[in-house]
């Protein structure tokens, strides 16, 4: 997987953020927010630096990162595909939709493709039950979907550069 987001520049920015917070009370949360913002994720390489500089055990940092949904261990892909598995979408077949997406892009739910192009997530109700089943790709919304329509949609993004 490309790890260009772990650039020296980004680490320099992280060090500045740590310096800004390290003598304040409870510096871990604000530093993690900064890290998520800087790198788009908080992978082990970043956690190690925070652990050493803040003197907080790695296990504690990992625990916080995996507890809060705002933090992620790997960056989201260029296109974030979200399939609603809320009740209305589910009864109208969104499970088959998400399975089709998985098959087409080769990425499990909650993961990112090795080329960094796609991330796939299952969401709870997004409040568009009238359009069930619903899938979003970044800011684009696709409603009243059928499994047959999925390949065309995915192809569109695969061809976008």
């Amino acid at each position: 997987m490309t790890k260009s987001y772990l650039s020296e520049e980004n680490f320099a920015t992280l060090h500045k953020a740590i310096d800004a917070y390290k003598d304040t009370q409870g510096p871990l949360m604000p530093v993690l927010h900064e890290a998520q913002h800087i790198f788009g994720a908080i992978p082990i390489e970043v956690q190690k630096v925070i652990s050493e500089r803040l003197n907080v055990p790695l296990a504690e940092i990992y625990g916080v990162v995996t507890f809060y949904s705002q933090f992620t261990l790997e960056p989201t892909g260029e296109f974030l595909i979200s399939v609603c598995l809320g009740t209305a979408c589910y009864v109208r077949g969104s499970q088959q939709i998400i399975e089709k997406v998985t098959e087409l892009i080769g990425v499990d739910v909650g993961k990112t493709s090795t080329d960094g192009k796609f991330s796939l997530q299952a969401t709870r109700c997004i409040g568009a039950c009238g359009l069930a089943p619903v899938m979003t790709v970044n800011d684009d919304v696709y409603g009243r979907l059928t499994v047959a329509e999925v390949p065309g949609i995915v192809k569109k993004y695969q061809e976008t550069h």
């Binding site: 956690q47 990992y62 625990g63 995996t66």
Partner: peptide, 25 residues
Amino acid sequence: CKNVQGIGILDFMNRGFETTVGPAF
């Protein structure tokens, strides 16, 4: 591990039903 020994190898990870205790990652 964290308070008596001052090391912190073990901690809670993940949340809700998937919560476990173990080393980082």
